[in-house]
Computed example of a mutant assay.
Amino acid sequence: MSKHERWNAVLELLAAEGRVEVEEAATALGVSAATIRRDLDELAEQRLLVRTRGGAVAHGVSYELPLRYKSGRHAAEKARIAAAAADLIAPGEVVGLNGGTTTTEVARALAVRFAGEPAEAAQPPAPSGPALTVVTNALNIAAELAVRPQIKIVTTGGVARPQTYELVGPLAAGVLGEVVLDAVVLGVDGVDPALGAMAHQEEEASISRLFAERASRVVVVTDSSKLGRRAFARICGLDRIDLLVTDTGIAPETEDRLSEAGVRVLAV
Rank of each mutant, 00 (worst) to 15 (best):
S32F: 01
P66L: 07
L29M: 11
V50Q: 14
V20S: 07
S32A: 05
P118T: 14
L67S: 08
I36K: 10
Q123G: 06
A16W: 01
R53G: 11
F114E: 00
A121R: 14
Q123F: 15
L97N: 12
L97P: 12
T52W: 10
A75V: 14
R19S: 15
S71R: 15
A26L: 05
G60V: 11
A34H: 14
G30V: 06
V94P: 01
G99D: 10
R73K: 15
G55K: 01
G92H: 09
V20Q: 03
T35Y: 09
V61I: 11
G72K: 13
V50D: 07
H74W: 07
G96Q: 04
L110C: 00
A79S: 15
Q46F: 09
A82C: 04
A58K: 07
S32R: 13
R51S: 08
E23K: 07
E17C: 14
E120Q: 15
R80G: 11
V106K: 05
V106P: 01
S71F: 04
V95E: 01
L40M: 09
R108N: 00
A26E: 07
V94S: 04
G55D: 00
E120S: 14
D41Q: 15
T103A: 06
R51E: 11
K70A: 14
A122Y: 05
E64D: 02
A107K: 04
G99N: 09
K70V: 10
A121D: 13
A83V: 11
R37V: 05
A84M: 00
E17N: 15
E105S: 11
L67V: 14
L48E: 05
V50M: 04
V95R: 08
T101E: 04
A56C: 05
S62C: 14
R47P: 10
A115K: 08
R113I: 01
A34Q: 15
L110W: 03
A75M: 04
G99W: 04
D39Q: 00
A115R: 14
S71A: 15
E24I: 08
R113T: 00
K70E: 14
